[in-house]
Design a protein around this nucleic acid. Sequence first.
DNA 1: TAATAATCTACTAATTTTATAGGGTTTGAG
DNA 2: CTCAAACCCTATAAAATTAGTAGATTATTA
Lengths: 137, 137
Amino acid sequence: MLSKKTKYGIKALTYLARQKDKSPVQIATISKSENISLKFLESILLTLRKNDLLGSKKGKGGGYYLLHEPKDIQMTSVMRVLEGPISMVPCVSLNFYEKCDDCPDENKCAVHSLMAQLRDSSLEIFKNTTLADLCRC
Amino acid sequence: MLSKKTKYGIKALTYLARQKDKSPVQIATISKSENISLKFLESILLTLRKNDLLGSKKGKGGGYYLLHEPKDIQMTSVMRVLEGPISMVPCVSLNFYEKCDDCPDENKCAVHSLMAQLRDSSLEIFKNTTLADLCRC
DNA sequence: TAATAATCTACTAATTTTATAGGGTTTGAG
DNA sequence: CTCAAACCCTATAAAATTAGTAGATTATTA
């Protein structure tokens, strides 16, 4: 299941991407518009900022804004930051590889090959979809 | 992330699919061979049986066995039984549809369209992969 | 029929993840 | 200086996950 963290994060990102100018938007504004718990959204935006997807400005007139053009933000990076690895098992993860402790030989593991296929197709979709694409709905 | 329940379930299924004959295999045998906690495996095999993927036989010489030919068992049914819906969000699920309570219009939801794409590609893979394919690793 | 081997059922429990809530601190604009 | 906003830290309730324990039930075989 997709976590609400990721869902809310994507919604917030598209909200920002739809802005005409790049002036900061307050958390409360996004929270109200997208029906997201304010404090939860706060922590989500913070992790997006720490991972260089968003910039922020403090004080009066402050808020969050996109650091890059929507068309330059691939969903791979959004998903990795919010949801974690694209793969469903660590042993097929490209960026977060980890050996399974119950598997003697992962080349002979049935789960491994299936999940590798799944990873490839998911990766393909996430790579070819940018934030700009999501705004066209 | 893929739950261990699903991972273990798939391993058990492939173990059974690799058997020459269809005589019952004891839980303990699979448990040892695949490094799976016996009692956990027991509950997994039980849900597989309740969902018509496995048959069981009690008493001496008993155990679990496949009800169908490996080539006739699609991964869609295995995944649905063990892991739940294929979709990552209920609002794009074909078999378990549910409306999001935070979404006024799901046709305008950016997450929705992305997840629908993902569901399609996952479904494609699971539909075209059978237990027999997984045994060839 | 009695012993045995296996599944089946029902609790319990530790751990982790998820989804928030509260409150104080820091920064920057006017 | 004042105020508004992001920032940061802590806590927590609920749910899911991953088991472990104890015993009941059923079927086979000798």
